[in-house]
Computed example of a mutant assay.
Amino acid sequence: GCPVHFGQNEDGISFSERDMASPVIDRDAAVFTAVTAYIEREFPHRHPPLHAQVRGIVMQWLWTAHCSNDRVAAELGLHPRALHRRLATEGTSFQKIKDEVRRDILRYYLEQTDIDFAHVSEKLGFSEQSVMTRSCNHWFGASPTRLRARLHAPA
């Protein structure tokens, strides 16, 4: 019964202040302790691989001026060369991750929305719509128009 917003910069659930201020009725301390212990045991605090951290930041910043190797490295507390080396040990690079995110989001926009191509190109940080078209042809073997038509076609 709540509104769902697609294509946002982040995932999340919003609660009103009134909801957050509501008291917990019949709190069971034993259940809380058991659930907390289970979560800590089954989901220990681990940092995701560096490429996954970079991907998450790129997904947030793709359509901003902040989506650069230097800025992402700074966000992670790394020198840009250290980021480059560590990504290389994981078999990837900043540009490869950025292109993968662009590819995945482009497919989403073409499959799930009717946003015009100029706006999609701008949101994905392409310098021009023609660059997006070339990338789409490279990644999917079809232009954005053909891909959208194919993805929207009934099965």
Rank of each mutant, 00 (worst) to 15 (best):
C2I: 15
V4A: 12
H5S: 11
F6M: 14
G7S: 14
E10Q: 15
E10A: 14
G12P: 11
I13G: 06
I13H: 10
I13M: 15
D28A: 14
V31K: 12
F32I: 12
T33Y: 08
T36P: 00
Y38V: 05
I39F: 09
E40N: 07
R41P: 02
E42W: 02
F43S: 04
P44R: 10
H45Y: 04
R46K: 11
H47G: 09
P48T: 05
P48L: 11
L50S: 11
H51T: 06
H51N: 13
V54G: 09
V54A: 09
G56A: 09
V58S: 02
V58G: 01
W61H: 14
W63E: 12
A65Q: 13
A65K: 15
D70R: 11
R71Q: 14
A73Y: 06
L78D: 07
P80G: 06
R81G: 01
R81N: 11
H84R: 15
R86V: 02
L87S: 08
A88G: 08
T89K: 12
G91R: 05
S93Y: 04
S93T: 13
S93L: 04
D99M: 09
R103F: 00
R103M: 04
R103W: 01
L106T: 06
Y108S: 06
Y109G: 00
D114Q: 09
I115W: 00
I115H: 01
V120M: 03
V120T: 07
K123S: 02
S127F: 01
T133N: 05
S135N: 09
W139T: 01
W139H: 04
F140S: 04
G141C: 07
G141S: 06
P144H: 05
R148C: 03
R148V: 04
R150W: 05
H152Y: 01
P154V: 06
